[in-house]
């Protein structure tokens, strides 16, 4: 089987475009996973309910995992397929931006939805204060 390689600028530009698109997907999937896990963590009674903290830890963990996994995958698997060093450098910069985009989308979109659904398990992750 012939190994897929990226040799031309055009190919790498397309790859970078796809990488940004994947970054958006990864951020959304990570959010969905974090949401499901947040829902699965039960409210606990008694003083000092630790469930909001657990959700926050999971939220941070999933975000970091998604970003790191995406970054490393691109470095270790995708970059390897780029044959020319200058093009590889260009992709690496784009990879950093895409990874930061994942974190950005994850945090901003997560934050906005938490703000909207502030009185929910999802909302309990945020540190926003109530407006009542």
């Amino acid at each position: 089987m012939k190994r897929e390689v990226y040799e031309s600028i055009k190919q790498v530009d397309t790859l970078i475009g796809e990488t940004y698109l994947y970054a958006v997907f990864v951020a959304i999937i990570a959010l969905a996973v974090a949401y499901v896990i947040a829902r699965l963590i039960k409210w606990k009674g008694g003083k000092n309910d630790s469930s909001p903290l657990k959700r926050r830890i999971w939220f941070i963990g999933i975000g970091l995992f998604a970003a790191i996994y995406f970054f490393l995958y691109n470095i270790m698997v995708v970059s390897d397929k780029i044959t020319k060093d200058p093009l590889e450098d260009k992709f690496r910069i784009s990879n950093i931006i895409a990874t930061l985009s994942i974190l950005g989308i994850y945090i901003i979109l997560g934050g906005i939805t938490m703000l909207i659904f502030r009185r929910s398990k999802w909302g309990s992750i945020s540190v926003f204060k109530s407006n009542n």
Partner: peptide, 23 residues
Amino acid sequence: LLDKYDLFGQAQNGDLKKVKIDG
């Protein structure tokens, strides 16, 4: 009455703030 639930203790403790129910 049960510490396992203790809703009023939670409120007093400020735990309701975690779900943005202040006051």
